[in-house]
Design a binder for these strands. Structure first.
Length: 360
DNA sequence: AAATCGTGGAC
DNA sequence: TGTCCAAGATT
């Protein structure tokens, strides 16, 4: 493969110096700030992460601030950003940094890489950008750029492809400017070598790119076909007891771990709602409840399945809480709901709920 | 090594 | 509407 690493690196660095965006985490060299930004940017677009980054850094300016906080508060700041294990891992990692490394972010790859939530990408990004270590990042942008540059046949969404892309990126990285090279590759992928409608006319690697020369940019990167996503349906119960509503907290590990929600059970779309709510949902939380009426229906798309749910207004009848799956519960007013981290599917009917409760 | 894990933007 | 996919990590 005709690589010309020197030409690629120099063109890339020149382009980056002229065209890089001004981003909050580029105004600092604090490894903690860089780390936070990289975790938030994981599978998340820059524009989405920016307001979260500011709020998080303001509340947790150092690992010590985060380590001393309650997970609940951390999840509340993460609410809406998704992939909540990132927040829980970060919280745990901050604890390790404080207890074992005197609150200083480790600059040793072998050590930093062992922290919860730190994989190959985060380690390479933080250590190169904050400490100048010569380790190439390989993210979705880098794989797309390389796949087009060299017309690579490795599917970028296949886990086994990583061990092909990583050494290739390591061979291209400019040893004197690893931080700029890494960010330049990602910036190029984000601004020029985009997934759709790449702007090859303004690409610094125009003359070096095989896909451009062969008019095959649309064929790269290769990708394994995605599986079809299944569909799930829930019955959700908003259980009212005087002026309070019942919410439960999901188990800390797994899907939406640690977040709060209104109790729900799997259901069939056409199922008899009264029966399902008053037997199965009641059994899930250990109460006797009555179903009043349908509040609304919601739909939500997750990565691996789509969700639809019927949301029912219910009334508490009798009994003491006995939770099956949830780890804890609270009776809360509508107002105090906003203090708890709720996931998106629940936020989707809060307005409807507010209107109904407001009318008495 | 394939599956799992959220949400929003772009088309 | 559906589909991709976005500065990935974990199991």
């Amino acid at each position: 493969m005709a690589m010309q690493p020197e030409a690629i690196g120099q063109n890339l660095l020149d382009w980056y110096a002229a065209h890089q965006r001004r981003l909050p985490w580029r105004e600092t060299s604090d490894p903690w700030a860089i780390w936070i930004s990289e975790v938030m940017l994981q599978q998340t677009q820059v524009a989405t992460a920016i307001p979260y980054y500011h709020r998080f850094m303001h509340r947790f300016p150092t690992p010590r601030h985060l380590a001393g906080a309650n997970v609940q508060e951390v999840l509340k700041l993460w609410e809406g950003l998704g992939y909540y294990s990132r927040a829980r891992h970060l919280h745990r990692a901050a604890g390790v940094v404080v207890s074992r490394y005197h609150g200083q972010v480790p600059d040793d790859p072998a050590i930093f890489r062992t922290l919860p939530g730190v994989g190959d990408y985060i380690a390479a990004a933080v250590l190169s950008i904050a400490f100048g270590r010569v380790i190439a990042v390989v993210d979705g942008n880098v794989k797309r750029v390389l796949a087009r540059l060299f017309e690579l046949e490795h599917p970028v969404n296949r886990s086994g492809s990583h061990k092909f892309f990583q050494p290739l990126a390591d061979r291209l990285i400019t040893p004197h400017q690893p931080a700029d090279f890494n960010q330049a590759m990602m910036e190029l992928g984000a601004l020029v070598c985009r997934p759709k409608n790449p702007d090859c006319g303004h690409c610094p690697l125009f003359g070096l790119c095989r896909a451009n020369r062969n008019r095959t940019t649309a064929d790269y990167p290769r990708r394994d076909a995605a599986r079809k996503r299944p569909h799930r349906h829930l019955a959700i119960g908003v259980i009212v007891k005087e002026d309070k509503l019942l919410v439960v907290q999901r188990p800390m590990d797994g899907f939406l771990g640690g977040l709060w929600e209104f109790p729900a059970i799997p259901a069939m779309p056409g199922e008899n709602a009264d029966r399902a709510i008053e037997t199965e949902l009641a059994d899930e939380i250990g109460l006797r409840i009555g179903m009043d009426r349908l509040l609304t229906r919601i739909r939500h798309a997750y990565t691996h399945f789509t969700l639809s749910a019927d949301v029912y207004l219910c009334r508490y009848l009798s009994g003491r809480i006995r939770l099956k799956r949830a780890q804890s519960h609270r009776w809360v007013t509508f107002r105090s709901l906003q203090r708890l981290p709720l996931h998106k599917a629940n936020h989707k009917f809060l307005e409807d709920l507010k209107n109904v409760l407001g009318k008495g």
